[in-house]
Design a protein around this nucleic acid. Structure first.
Lengths: 340, 340
DNA sequence: CTGTTAGCGCTTTCAA
DNA sequence: TTGAAAGCGCTAACAG
């Protein structure tokens, strides 16, 4: 590793003070002689001098970096989201720290500590945990460090900025869609009910039943985990243990819907002929892959863009008129539901 | 944003010098009085003091961060890889910067500049470009900054550390597999031939033909781009324009194979009944999704782990006995090839 | 238009 | 066993 050249070297070579060099570096007060500017610029590019960003952030107290905390980048929803975030960062000259937590609350805390220790100027945070009862998180939250939730609304913290999805109406929408196609026995796999969005989706499902005058059946409801295996296990429960009858299954996300699908197929059921299937998410797979699942679209990329934009606004110290952004549900028909 | 508490505050509160505090912070020279250590530790945790990592890196010249440069995190191969990288980082107390380039050489350069400006201690680099003829890259390469290539072997730079895949034998393997099942007219879609791995896969394909005494036919070969649309277009060329006959199609990655598949299906061909299909990559989709493509497995996660491990070793200033890691191909049968 | 000076918060000699 | 002092490379008043 060769010796790094510093602002001092440039100053010396140009016969000016480091202040002057710093000025042209930051395009400040173009009260620097046109000719001097040229000379300095020349030497800088000649020597390929790169200002030390660490020294700089020491003073400016800005790292030009944000942290993105999410469960697992391998989940297509999050990689799509991450791309949206990164694109905004990139446009604004910011870097983006990737933090996978697997939903582990300890990792979440650890990353928050790491990031606020001046390595990041702001944090984008996705969690499925009950952060509202986590002391470390509350302390962080009250510290005023700029951050923004993504799809994790917390009733107890109505003032936290964030980007959300209208899960309630999304779930209601797709449940009504099923009912309107003749389904009355609709099995439901929720997300982990510790999270607000899982509860909202469940409530939307229940609301739709109620609106259409259908009695909810506890036997048709099970709590899942938003993972593939959660959907798989749900079917083992419904069809295997509980032996309940149902003509449609609505899983709270596409991944669980696919897991359920696998189990159903293994048991010889065909979709949608024997059982109709609905998901939530609309995770993107190459279009030739089948089957496809009728679902509610959540625009992951736009989530990334919006949340990053909101965060940057917060970081600038602005008070955005809209500190909560809510995306509306859109149903996407993909052939996994049939009328009966 | 409340005032950050610094080492000075701790020192004052403990009635010691900042040097002493610094010592206990870094577990240095446990020649600090046992009792003093206790007192300082106590105050630190009491005040939840977090050392300023920026100030620290100013001196240590380490940011405890590495950069991961890749084309697009949305590509499942890369998100899998990224997870491997991040897991290693996490274990070692490092952070990971995510840099999406879309393969754009300007973005690559930009990120490299950004990262080496002391924001990262090392770089993991995936590129499909001819970096060997990029002046900016060469300058970087010769600067001695720790970095490691991932799956981008460059003939002109045999000494660059990296993690690679035996693309040649992988392509040979799967081509032989096709031939051994009776296929003699095998269409081939390469990756962008500017890259070493695309050339290697093509050469493996050609080698297999040669070994089995089959004359290669230029009409059956087309250069793709590793993207979905590349595979799609290849079929338009083979079947549409060139009107060549073939019983199997081998695409240099799974994504292109899927793109080809879509086009073939649109034209009424069934896989594998009418045409057999082979890919390369083994990108992971939920197992229920069909069709699945017979392919060569590249262990993306392990790639991430290995490359990160190698990079860290380099960063520690070690000279790893193995500065080039090569993964061997494994064929995965997934039913898209039939014997004729 | 340009330079001097004082730090940012921390680690690290060198002394005591 | 502890502390004083000298920076790391840079920016930001404040002068001139």
């Amino acid at each position: 590793m060769e010796k790094k050249i510093t602002i001092k070297d440039i100053a010396r070579l140009c016969g000016v003070s480091i202040t002057t060099v710093s000025r042209v570096l930051n395009n400040k007060r173009e009260g620097v002689g046109e000719e001097t500017v040229e000379r300095i610029r020349h030497v800088i590019s000649d020597l390929k001098y790169q200002p030390n960003v660490v020294a700089r952030s020491m003073i400016t107290k800005r790292s030009h970096t944000i942290g993105l905390i999410l469960p697992d980048i391998r989940n297509p929803f999050f990689s799509e989201l991450a791309r949206g975030v990164e694109d905004v960062c990139n446009r604004l000259g910011y870097g983006c720290f990737l933090c996978n937590t697997d939903g582990d609350i300890e990792k979440e805390d650890k990353y928050i500590q790491l990031l606020r220790g001046r390595v990041a100027d702001g944090i984008l945070f996705t969690t499925q945990n009950n952060v509202e009862s986590n002391e470390a998180f509350l302390e962080f939250q009250s510290s005023g460090f700029p951050f923004c939730f993504i799809e994790r609304y917390i009733d107890e913290m109505p003032d936290v900025p964030g980007v959300y999805f209208d899960n309630f109406n999304g779930a209601r929408l797709i449940t009504e869609y099923l009912i309107d196609r003749g389904h009355r026995r609709i099995a439901f796999v929720s997300g982990p009910l510790t999270t607000h969005n899982a509860r909202q989706r469940r409530d939307g499902y229940l609301e739709a039943l109620k609106l259409r005058g259908i009695q909810a059946d506890e036997q048709l409801i099970v709590e899942g985990n938003y993972r593939y295996d959660g959907g798989y296990q749900a079917v083992s429960l419904f069809t295997g243990q509980r032996k309940v009858a149902y003509t449609a299954l609505f899983a709270s996300n596409d991944l669980m819907a696919l897991g359920a699908l696998q189990n159903l197929e293994e048991r010889g059921y065909r979709i949608p002929d024997d059982i109709s299937l609905a998901g939530f998410d609309h995770i993107a797979f190459p279009p030739v892959l089948r089957p496809t699942i009728t679902t509610i679209e959540i625009p992951a990329y736009e989530f990334g863009v919006s949340s990053a934009t909101l965060l940057f606004s917060l970081m600038r110290g602005e008070s955005p008129e809209q500190t909560k952004i809510v995306f509306s549900p859109k149903l996407v028909e993909k052939g996994s539901v049939r009328s009966i």
